[in-house]
Each structure stands twice: as structure tokens, then as C-alpha cells.
Design a protein around this nucleic acid. Structure first.
Lengths: 197, 197
DNA sequence: GTCATATGTGACACTGAGTTTCATCCATGC
DNA sequence: GCATGGATGAAACTCAGTGTCACATATGAC
């Protein structure tokens, strides 16, 4: 029994193919618009069958949004790594630095990707859904950090949700400025607008 | 030219049919589950053709979520009606009372409806999308209330988004308690978790 | 009353997403 | 070489959503 977590040659190959397919899909979506590109188009452009494409990404949207799949647990992990005496809000802000870092590494690509998602209602909706799915993990991480009765699940849920909103709104303004404004500053402003006492 | 806003006999009839169709759909979804019911099932149950059903609700989801269509502008209007000297966060909290009132009027029905939405990923996603669409109207209302430079669009956007999160989280906990907990108290707690200084 | 028009409806065909099934191919281990 | 299992491709299928057309009915003008 090769453990499920074991990363073997096959998994690496799969990941490479997946990345390649995602790249092809992204280019096509940007050129033609998400709605105009069919699964057949994607498969043809990538040189695989429609079946194979759908095996890598369960849905058309996931060919784009699969890039964000790891963000949820990543932010949750970053949250757990914050000092125990830090308040929820500050810890959430700092945990989002892991996401911001991704945008800093490739501003041009990130800008194009973020625009594509924002300008495509179907992608926007799926993205919101995906982020909604991160909330439980964030709440759990917050709870592990401070199990005292000072806080409740409701409070942690609201803060986790609000933190993700801050990210989204900051990104909205970032793309609106063509990436000229500083994402870190925008995020700080967003967090400041809700800073709990 | 009969003005578009004019409510004539025809519009009233349409609204009645629409309400009837929504009711039938809701019952069917609750009994069978949203995914198991097809548009043909809905049309047959309602005694109309598939075409007609789709004319009333553009999508299957909208047969359920159409009930929330007015909420966006309703909250925005309530926001504009708040005293000018009230801070954003308090005004948002009070504006949501218009929504809470709907739940208070029919707790049983609201509970079933909210559960259906929460338990159906497709509906949950569409609901998030719909609420996301409310944000611009809320931001505009906040701006009209206080056009001073004390605040920015980014700040207002974050607060509007966070307020809706508060509502959603409060509703999560309300349904989890089978409607036993007080929605108003839950909402107050949620808002308190983010109270800006 | 009659005619013209507009609107609601149903029937139908069509596209495209996503699921499922099956056959085949190929790499790995024996 | 041979068996096995995972990856692929082909194809049929369901269903949501769009668009078109024909028909019926109700409303308004004369």
C-alpha cells in the first residue's frame, strides 16, 4: 500500500500535465473569453481528449480556479504559525501575507488572472464558493490558537469571513489601479476599516 | 407608452403565477432534494411547460433565490433612511433589521428555506453571488449618507461585505439551533465581533 | 362587433457541461 | 515475456439553458 500522501513519479507527472492544461486554458480564456471557449476547444488546444481534460479539472471553472485550491489550508497553516498572544484580527492579516506573496512574485500574471476571474461572473461565483469553503479551516485554526472562552465560533466565523472580504476588496482596487497601488497597503486599509477593538 | 414602472393587471397576474411556481418548486426541492428535481419535473408539477417555467426563472436556482431579489435594494434603501450622524457600522446593522423582520414574520418557512440554501452547494454559491451583487448598491448608499472624505470606497466596500457576512454567519448559527436562538442577538454578536472603532 | 396587435404560452431543436461506461494502451513489477 | 493497474480516448447519455416559431388569447382602436 503506497500511502496516499506519498508523492511518486506518477503524481509529479500528473501535476505537470495539470499545470500545462491550466496554462493552455488560461491563455484561451483570456483571448476568447471564458464563455466562448468550450471544453472541446480546450481539449483540442491542449492536445488531449475532452474526457482527459475533465478528469484533471472537474469543471471548466476549475481549470482556472484550481490555482487557488491550496490557498485555504495555506492560510490556515499560516494562522496556526502566528504567535499565541496575537489577536485574531492581526493574526488573520498576517496570515494573508502568504497569499499576497503569490501576487508579489508574479504581478503581471496575477493581474491577468484576477481580472479574468473578476470579469467572468461564473468564475467570480465559483471563487466566492471556494473561499466560503475555506472558512471552517480558518475557524478551526483560530480556535486552536486561542481555545479560551473569550471568543466563540460565531465570532471567529465572522472574522474569518471578513478577512477574506478584505482580501477580495483589496484585490478589486488593485486591479482597478492596473496593479499600480500597493496590494499590502490596500489590504492594511481594508483591515483597518474593521479593526475590532 | 405605458411606463415600465407602471404596475398593471398583467404584472400582478405575472407576480401571482411566479409566486405559485416558486412555491411548487420549493416543496419539490425540499422533498426530493434540489439536484434530483429536473426542470421537466418542476414544469410538470406546476402544470406549465418547461419553456414557461424558464421564462419566470432564468435558472433552476432562481426558482428558490428569486425570493431574495429585492433584499439588496431594500437594505440599501433602509441604509439611506438612517440618520446622517450614525456611523457606517451601526447604520448597516440597523439596515439589516429589514431583512431580519422577514425571518421573524415566518420563522418556520424561513428556517426551511435557509436550510435548503445552506445544504445545497449550488444554491449556496448562487446566493453568495447574489449578495456580492448587492455590494455596489450598499456602497453607494453609504456614500450618499456621508460624502465626506473621512471614508473611501474601499472602506465602505469592506464594511458592506462584512455586514452581509455577519448576516450569513448569524443565519448559520440560527439554523444550527433549529431557530431557537434569537436571530437579532446572533446578528448583534456578529457585528460586535468586528465593531470598528 | 371586428380587426390588428401585443403578449403569454407550448413545442421543438440545438448547444454545451458534466457523468458514466467501456475498450485500449502503456508502464511497472514479477 | 507476462500480468496488473493507472491513464487515456471514444461514445452515449442526462440535463440546463437558449433560441425560434406557431398558436392562442386578451386588449385597444375603429
Amino acid at each position: 500500500m503506497s500511502g496516499a500522501a506519498r508523492t511518486n513519479t506518477r503524481d509529479i507527472a500528473r501535476a505537470a500535465v495539470r499545470a500545462e492544461l491550466a496554462q493552455v486554458a488560461f491563455e484561451l480564456f483570456r483571448q476568447e473569453g471564458f464563455a466562448k471557449v468550450t471544453l472541446d476547444d480546450l481539449a483540442a488546444a491542449a492536445g488531449v481528449s475532452r474526457s482527459t481534460f475533465l478528469r484533471y479539472f472537474g469543471t471548466k471553472e476549475d481549470a482556472v480556479l484550481g490555482a487557488f485550491n491550496a490557498h485555504g489550508t495555506q492560510v490556515a497553516d499560516a494562522l496556526r504559525a502566528r504567535p499565541a498572544d496575537e489577536d485574531d484580527w492581526t493574526a488573520l492579516r498576517r496570515a494573508l501575507d502568504t497569499v499576497v506573496e503569490r501576487y508579489r512574485l508574479d504581478p503581471t500574471g496575477s493581474l491577468a488572472m484576477t481580472r479574468l476571474v473578476q470579469d467572468t461572473p461564473a468564475l467570480c461565483a465559483r471563487q466566492l464558493e471556494k473561499q466560503h469553503g475555506w472558512r471552517p479551516a480558518l475557524v478551526e485554526a483560530l480556535t486552536e490558537r486561542d481555545d479560551s472562552s473569550r471568543s466563540t465560533t460565531l465570532i471567529r466565523s465572522v472574522r474569518a469571513a471578513a478577512a477574506l472580504d478584505c482580501l477580495n476588496v483589496a484585490l478589486d482596487h488593485w486591479t482597478a489601479s492596473n496593479g499600480h497601488l500597493d496590494l499590502v497597503e490596500l489590504l492594511d486599509e481594508a483591515f483597518a476599516a474593521l479593526a475590532p477593538h
